[in-house]
Design a protein around this nucleic acid. Structure first.
Lengths: 236, 236
DNA sequence: CCTCAGTTTTGAACACGTTCAAGACAACGA
DNA sequence: TCGTTGTCTTGAACGTGTTCAAAACTGAGG
């Protein structure tokens, strides 16, 4: 029933082979057009074997997200440490994120087609992708921490998560962006990054502070709705 | 190939029967759990007949949106004319919208699972749902026009569409809202409606005006990307 | 070498959404 | 009454994602 995260070097190898074949076919033909039988054939296994390692066709995409995040971190590398300017740091993270995902633009739409479905394990808000989400938020926290940016009290705790939401917005735009080389997305990044810093600055002004506080409060209230309580002791 | 919008009273009757059966099953069992064979059985027709009227299982949802919009307008009725206060008007539209869709909360998730997919005909941004989208935006234009609200030049043209996007956000929240009676959604409406008016007011201030202008400009630039050109003369 | 438990692999079988060639039906003019 | 034409209806058949009982393999202990 529950798919296995291979317990043998050979098993791990097979798993990789299936994932490679799947991503390759997804990239060249699209997700919907690729059948599990094609994947199995390309990986030289029986169709049932693919289901031994991946619970469903969708789960292959979750595995893709993980791989993609690793790729992103690799590209980002030590480059983040070369500047202390907030805008530079944020722009760098976003641009490399898009760079890393570029070959899989069409596939990435799946991220959002499930984002809204509260029950889909593929949703970036689902418990299944919680570790990956936490990772991405951690990167944003690093962006802020490594910069000289002064953040208002009200915003400080939630800023990394807000930046992650902003990142998701950029990716949503990118997924729809059919301009050559996705130049419009890069332009969007370059134009909105300064706005983000300005907004963070503005949030400290007495005029908008109450509004900021209310918005942040609503975000906090929303969170448990998106990710169910999960009490300390597992009940069953 | 192309499904038909019945040309006979009897055909129209069959079409309604199938849609009724489908929505009933969707509501009680959920969308994924309902099979086309069940729908056909409940409507006393053969499976193939369902496909004569609806191109796919998804298209049944599009038909549901249309019906739901009519229900919304019916509930809204003449109530919109009872007040000239912008906040009251906006709140009324949002609350009745949620009221009308309430029995189909789970089904409505489908609206968003496809919203992000540029190719899905179910997406609220797709050409297929353009008429319905235009209708919803028109309602928002009426909300503004019938109120004494003073809108800045920069915002005026795009405000109805922005309000529609805000409405979509509210519905997105509602779809995820599992609180009893969806009270959290109603609370969200009550808390954000004043913010919206305040934002519209703030947009006129010299400090934020350039930012507003840039944001609106980006929205305008985005539109043709979401909805392809569609030149004056239909080519085919 | 054999045994045996654990792991991996197989492929037929299932239910689903969807298609399509064929038939049934309805309205109308000859 | 009989074709004829356009609309509607049927149900078997196809390809899909997914399941599962059975087989094959692996490696450690006797």
């Amino acid at each position: 029933m529950e798919p296995v995260r291979s317990k043998t070097p050979k098993g791990e190898q097979t798993r990789e082979r299936i994932l490679d074949a799947a991503l390759d076919l997804f990239r060249t033909q699209g997700y919907a057009e690729t059948t599990m039988r094609q994947i199995a054939d390309a990986a030289d296994v029986a169709v049932g074997n693919a289901y031994y390692y991946f619970a469903s066709k969708d789960q292959l995409i979750l595995a893709f997200y993980e791989r993609n995040h690793r790729d992103h971190l690799a590209i980002l590398g030590a480059a983040l440490d070369t500047t202390k300017d907030f805008q530079d740091r944020l722009r760098l993270v976003l641009r490399t994120k898009v760079d890393a995902a570029m070959p899989y633009r069409r596939l990435s739409t799946k991220l959002f087609t499930s984002a809204a479905d509260p029950e889909s394990p593929l949703s970036p808000f689902s418990p299944e992708s919680a570790p990956l989400r936490a990772e991405a938020i951690r990167v944003m926290a690093e962006v802020v921490a490594g910069s000289g940016l002064r953040v208002g009290k009200d915003l400080r705790a939630d800023l990394p998560e807000l930046l992650w939401l902003y990142e998701m917005g950029v990716i949503l735009y990118w997924v729809h962006d059919s301009s050559p080389g996705c130049e419009k997305t890069y332009a969007l990044i370059d134009r909105t990054v300064p706005m983000v810093e300005r907004l963070i600055g503005v949030a400290k002004l007495p005029v908008v502070r109450p509004m900021v506080r209310e918005l942040v409060g609503m975000l906090d209230e929303l969170r448990p709705a998106a990710a169910p309580p999960a009490p300390a002791a597992a009940a069953e």
